[in-house]
């Protein structure tokens, strides 16, 4: 299991409230209040974006919003740091290819 349901120090995970987000169009469930990155990892997703020049996959790296390796397109906005952005019900999360483009600009 990827979710740590029980832990010798942290105890049982009592979070229950679930939200639904989409990852590249596919519905996945996430825990309310958790970060996008952790919801994706819990659902077995490890590649969050592909680099511009070499088209290589990237995942989380620093986990605290510093390195920008985990950026994705969230509700149409590119370069969102998924490790420090909370999930919201109905959120659309998409793999980012390259640097991303801002729409309507």
């Amino acid at each position: 299991m990827t979710r740590i349901k029980d832990h010798p120090i942290l105890g049982k995970d009592t979070r229950e409230e679930i939200v639904t987000i989409t990852f590249d169009g596919k519905e996945i469930t996430a825990l309310k209040g958790e970060m996008i990155a952790s919801a994706l990892i819990a659902n077995g997703v490890h590649s969050f974006r592909y680099t511009e020049k070499h088209n290589k996959p990237r995942g989380i790296y620093c986990g605290i919003g510093r390195c920008t390796d985990c950026v994705m397109i969230v509700d149409g906005i590119p370069n969102v740091r998924t490790c420090v952005t909370e999930v919201k019900d109905g959120m659309k999360v998409e793999t980012q290819y390259g640097r991303g483009e801002w729409k309507n600009e």
Binding site: T2, R3, I4, H7, L10, D13, E34, M35, A37, S38, I41, A42, G59, I60, Y61, C62, G63, I64, C83
Partner: peptide
């Protein structure tokens, strides 16, 4: 990933 990133994932995000 950074060791601290893994620590954030397991102890804060619980994944």
């Amino acid at each position: 990933m950074g060791a601290g990133a893994a620590q954030t994932m397991i102890n804060l995000n619980r994944v």
